[in-house]
Simulated scan of single mutants.
Amino acid sequence: MSTGFAPIESAQEFAVLIGVITSRQTEELANEYLDELEFLAETSGAETKKKFLQKIDRPNPKTYIGSGKIKEIKEYIDANGVDIAIFDDELSPSQLRNIEKEFEIKVLDRNNLILDIFASRARTSHAKTQVELAQYQYLLPRLTGLWTHLDRTKGGIGMRGPGETQIETDRRIIKEKISLLQEKLKKIDKQMSVQRGNRGQLVRSALVGYTNVGKSTIMNLLSKSDVFAENKLFATLDTTVRKVVIDNLPFLMSDTVGFIRKLPHQLIESFKSTLDEVREADILIHVVDISHPSFEDQYTVVNETIAEIDKSVADKPMIVIFNKVDAYNPKPADIGYHPDGKDFALDALKKTWMAKLNDTDCLFISAQENINIDELKALLYKEAKAIFQVRYPYHNFLY
Rank of each mutant, 00 (worst) to 15 (best):
N98P: 01
N329L: 07
N80V: 02
G45A: 00
T165K: 13
I371H: 07
I290W: 10
Y33N: 14
I306H: 14
L376S: 15
K215N: 08
I319S: 08
M354P: 02
H292F: 04
E183R: 14
W353Y: 14
E75N: 06
A367N: 13
I218M: 03
P250N: 12
Q298V: 13
F87S: 06
Q298A: 13
I8S: 02
V227F: 12
N220S: 06
Y138V: 01
E375V: 11
H286W: 05
K101I: 02
I290P: 10
V107C: 00
K62I: 10
D35P: 08
I321T: 09
R58T: 09
I117W: 00
D343F: 05
T148M: 12
S92W: 00
F14M: 07
T352Q: 03
K190E: 10
I99W: 04
L202N: 13
L346E: 12
K342C: 03
A206S: 15
G336C: 10
S92G: 00
A345F: 12
V325I: 15
G145Q: 07
I105P: 03
M159C: 04
K69E: 04
I246N: 10
Q137S: 01
E32H: 15
R97D: 06
V213W: 09
K71A: 11
F251P: 15
A314R: 06
L91S: 06
D326C: 05
S254R: 12
V208S: 14
K356P: 06
V390T: 14
S366D: 00
I56G: 07
F52D: 05
P393S: 15
N248C: 13
I70N: 04
E9H: 06
V244P: 10
K106S: 08
S2P: 01
K316L: 10
S10D: 03
P264I: 03
